[in-house]
Design a protein around this nucleic acid. Sequence first.
DNA 1: CTTTGGCACTCCTGGCTACGGAGTGCTAAT
DNA 2: ATTAGCACTCCGTAGCCAGGAGTGCCAAAG
Lengths: 347, 347
Amino acid sequence: MKNPPLDERKAYILATVVYEYVASAEPVASQTLTHKYHLGVSPATVRNEMAELEAGGYLVQPHTSAGRIPSDAGYRTFVDELMHPEGLTAAERRQIRDELRDARSELDDLIDQTTRLLGRLSNSLAFVTKPQAEMQVFKHIQLISIGPRTGVAIVVTSFGVSAQNLFELTSDVSAEDLTKLSSAMNQKFTGHMLSDVKESEIANLISELKLSEELRGAVTAAMQSARSSEAPAIAAAGAQNLLDQPEFRDARKLRSILRIVEEQRTLYDIVADAMDNDVASVKIGRELGSEELADLSVVTVPYRFGPRAIGMLSILGPRRMPYARLMALAAGTAKSLSQRIAEAEIK
Amino acid sequence: MKNPPLDERKAYILATVVYEYVASAEPVASQTLTHKYHLGVSPATVRNEMAELEAGGYLVQPHTSAGRIPSDAGYRTFVDELMHPEGLTAAERRQIRDELRDARSELDDLIDQTTRLLGRLSNSLAFVTKPQAEMQVFKHIQLISIGPRTGVAIVVTSFGVSAQNLFELTSDVSAEDLTKLSSAMNQKFTGHMLSDVKESEIANLISELKLSEELRGAVTAAMQSARSSEAPAIAAAGAQNLLDQPEFRDARKLRSILRIVEEQRTLYDIVADAMDNDVASVKIGRELGSEELADLSVVTVPYRFGPRAIGMLSILGPRRMPYARLMALAAGTAKSLSQRIAEAEIK
DNA sequence: CTTTGGCACTCCTGGCTACGGAGTGCTAAT
DNA sequence: ATTAGCACTCCGTAGCCAGGAGTGCCAAAG
């Protein structure tokens, strides 16, 4: 596993091997390359080059007398240095935009729709993290009295209603008191970042208004769940698409994937560090950090609310995936989603 | 496919074939039966009986010299007439109750949890329809002003917050007017069934208060989505469990299942008519109405809010499933879920 | 008339071998 | 440095055979 910089011909051969293997799912032979791509050299020369690429760790041979397939490192080099980035056609862009425009404006539904759309377009498994709300703007809180000792706290942010929490108290609270507290909070916090609404300030308001200390717990719980900080829920769609790929002929491979998707936690860990990136990031094979996922790759793009990333949109497929295409697709969808969210903002 | 009533011995043989096939996933031979179950007759006799059961349409033979497996009709007879109903042990009951008790009280989360639990316990794919809310009691509506022309309508029912709808108007409405309308509606409708809140009465209130006609649309839309009448969302979990079953060795079989689960609509059609039943209903193989699902079965049990069924909880697995066990599991879980929902009721 | 032992027959399964084909690595010539 | 040629390796498949499981039927027994 040395790492000499690749000369131009080696780079081209590596790229064509990736390209060809992605298309055919078969190990790529020297002759295939000379036939399909005009290399201007003989198969024997290509074999020599491929042997060196293998020594360098870019290619592997499934067995002695077979063609070559890319290794993790081979894909990595391809993605980072060799491939031509793709874009979407105007028609595709339009299609994405239109489908999202038709979606219902509820944020959760919008995320679901986006996930399905992306799963369909990529013909892979798509998953999208629900927005992290910390950076939303606080718009309104409303405490509603339901019974003498029960109530509902509703928090509205720039994304829409983002939390509703039932609470129960041990002593009676009047509807008027709840209204008073609601208005006080609205006056004080409206327009602030959600993360700037501090528990201590809520406590101050409550004691100023001479209300039950218990309310503090209820209100902060509601604010808490509006923020829903770590490991937010993840929507997934398109698992069935994976079954088209020859690498899933053996159904067992799918098992761990389905389990991981259902658990969500691992999924989130995989994409978490892509949040700060502003373009598509890719994790290839073992980079996913789990032996079970060793022959998969994930493309991730954050989506935004204004300037700030609030969630991520990912495509999971076999390592043998059309990287440039899927990166374009993810980026395009993220862009449309971001726009859609911006439009839906409550000003 | 005649249908003579089965004599006792035939019935017993059919039952043991089902039992044995469910356990082993292998066609059942005459000798297996005489060995494992004390029939008091020889294999040859059993063979004669099995031949007649095959003529009657209860059994089929995968190939000439193989044992028998049950047909749809065989399973159906088994489920309807032959099998001994099972119950859950006290420990299992307790486990279910405890796991649901720990669940968060948000209704959606509760449904999700229940689905996962059922998927885990049944080692199959579980799915649960979200409650149909028509029969909920209206508790409260709150119209909140967010901007001069935008607002949020929040409807609280006995299940908790069941709808939040953003609305936008073409002319300004004051926060006071919204509060006025909210109180008027609360006074008039609190305690009524959701289905009894008629659009015309809302319109009356609005004109009495001399408010914009536009509000009528906004409010009725919110009431509408609180009711969310037909084909409600469905939570699913445990698809990976199916991969343990030998019938899914071939991954293609899973494809259509995953697609159908994702679509939801077909899933809902399958279970819809089980709503009125008050015990577990079973659909076997072709009874599911789709060639794709021909080797699957579904067990469905409604869950309740008070006396009324509000949703269904189902287990989908290979036709070769332990019916009595899964019916007990589904029924037990439905019962616990119903109780949990009753407890969470907002009085 | 029902039951049963016996037996021939069918069909599946797994292992073995042979073989064609694809593709490489190496060597020697250009 | 490139390449033609060639021997070699390994995979995949087809064909074959033997073993085994299970049936259907017949004829004898209860």
